[in-house]
Design a protein around this nucleic acid. Structure first.
Lengths: 235, 235
DNA sequence: ACCTGAACACCGTTCAAGT
DNA sequence: ACCTGAACACCGTTCAAGT
């Protein structure tokens, strides 16, 4: 929108006051609308109509800023109602996390890949740990938590990581359609079901072709597995 | 090692012949030894003692080169023996994949995050699809494949993604040790078990503190779940 | 306190020109 | 066919200087 800072006087205030929140908000928008590779400290500064150095005064360096963007994203996920069955609670939380990731895929990818820098983003982990203890998991608490967290966040990340750049979709599609039947007998035999629907075999991206049923299948594997490992409680 | 190309004659051949394999090999080594952020087309060229443009002639651009590096990594994973029980086969494959990732964490992270560009890297997917069909999965073939693939690769990726930079480990540790008991009652109550052992609550990285038991726990959740969803076969 | 303007040390990529 | 040397259009970050 706005161009490079037009001849403002040295040290003069920006016409629109620059705040930390405005910077994070704009960074979020750039990443979501134009992709992470379109985001830079300089492009952000240009968008805000200030010099790059201004950003450093407000939010620190690039890494800090991305941490703030991640945090703004993850804190919008709302926990399910406490008083439902734990299986339902777990499924709902997984679905809400994933829905929020599909709504903001670029920031979601960023938040999963980069280490989260904000301690605040531990509200979901804390809730999961609490729920696992509540249902009686004790000895395998850490493993159950890691399994759920790793599987769910990992699945969503891979779902959102397309095989191809947007401009090369058709290339990938034809590569996959013409796989060698000798080398990949199983994939080629099942290609009508797998093509564009299975991880590593898609040409569309995760937002255009969401893997809803596969995600629910994974959630049911995890939840059933946990249920089977619960201590037997006589009602 | 070698410095910038010393006054070689314009157009003269490099003293060590530059091949595609040598470029990929060196790129692999730089990423593994010094991290992905230390890798650049220019640093690689310097290491090889040539000008950056030379690389473009041999391997195309940066994105293509990283694709080749990924491929060199994934093709080293060897499939388990065909004639074992399918549960064992699946567990072994997961463990081998993970072991190989822990052995080359930086390239493994790269390969999981970026889309794989090489069709050749579908040998593992093809083997999994074949195994799933062999044991009788049909209706949920795609979902079972996606669940396993997403959960396993995702878990390993998150395990390898540390919360902190190597130089800020102690900061993260003290942040986590001093969590607010009001906001995070469950984590603080279980901190002796969770601290440095649960995803998002670690300060050491995934190689120094591997989550072996958690991974096996996840594998057993997945495998038991698949077994329960198999069509009943009378022996 | 807040922002400019310039500088520093990097990038990826392209291309004419050489052998 | 293979490589140089230079150029182009970018980066993130720092810092003295201004108001």
């Amino acid at each position: 929108m706005s161009a490079v800072p037009a001849g403002r006087k040295r040290g003069a205030r920006a016409e629109v006051p620059i705040t930390k929140d405005a910077i994070v908000e704009t960074a979020f928008r750039i990443i979501e609308e134009r992709g992470l590779e379109a985001f830079s400290m300089r492009s952000l500064a240009t968008e805000l109509g200030v010099f790059p150095a201004t950003l450093y005064w407000h939010v620190g360096d690039r890494s800090c800023l991305l941490g703030l963007v991640e945090h703004r994203w993850i804190e919008e996920v709302v926990l399910p109602d406490e008083c439902t069955d734990w299986r339902d609670w777990m499924l709902q939380l997984g679905r809400r996390y994933r829905a929020h990731a599909l709504a903001h895929p670029n920031v979601a990818r960023l938040a999963t890949i980069e280490r989260a820098r904000n301690v605040d983003s531990l509200v979901i982990p804390d809730a999961i740990v609490g729920k696992l203890i509540e249902i009686g998991l004790d000895r395998d608490l850490v493993h159950a938590y890691n399994a759920i967290m790793g599987a769910v966040r990992g699945f969503v990340l891979l779902e959102l990581s397309p095989r191809s750049e947007p401009d090369a979709e058709s290339d990938v599609e034809s590569d996959l359609r013409n796989l060698d039947e000798e080398r990949f007998p199983n994939i080629t035999a099942q290609f009508d079901r797998l093509g564009d629907h299975a991880l590593s075999m898609r040409w569309s991206n995760g937002v255009d072709r969401p893997l809803n049923d596969s995600f629910d299948f994974l959630m049911s594997l995890l939840i059933d597995g946990l249920a089977a490992r619960l201590p037997v409680t006589r009602p």
